[in-house]
């Protein structure tokens, strides 16, 4: 299991936070077609959901590429470790990423 106690303190990420010279943001704020490296999952993401997201490959260091968002504020599609998967914006918001140039 993921050991919470050993992790350094988490930062709650939202679109306004400017970590690492403005390049860090949450996953849902990425522009379509851009790629990013995952920094961490927010501590707001807990329990089963956290475990599931990590099992799917949303672990620090993974590279994600943002694809389309579904209509009506629907889920956002990502390419991650060779798989396309969709997360709801509220979930993607819990993933802190560092945009790659």
């Amino acid at each position: 299991m993921f050991n919470f106690s050993k992790r350094p303190s988490f930062r709650v990420i939202d679109e306004r936070s400017d970590i690492g010279a403005g390049r860090a943001r949450s996953l849902d704020a990425l522009r379509p077609g851009s790629a990013a490296r995952i920094v961490e999952l927010s501590p707001m993401c807990r329990g089963f959901e956290r475990k599931r997201m990590m099992d799917l490959g949303l672990v620090p260091g993974s590279i994600v590429e943002r694809a389309e968002q579904a209509p009506f504020g629907g889920p956002i599609a990502f390419r991650l470790r060779g798989v396309t998967m969709a997360l709801r914006p509220s979930q993607a918001n819990l993933v802190a990423v560092e945009e790659l140039r």
């Binding site: 579904a70 209509p71 009506f72 504020g73 629907g74 889920p75 599609a77 969709a86």
Partner: peptide, 15 residues
């Protein structure tokens, strides 16, 4: 399911 989830999530349901 991907296309419809936006609507389903507003209805409190799963895509």
């Amino acid at each position: 399911a991907f296309n419809m989830d936006g609507l389903f999530s507003r209805a409190g349901a799963h895509g």
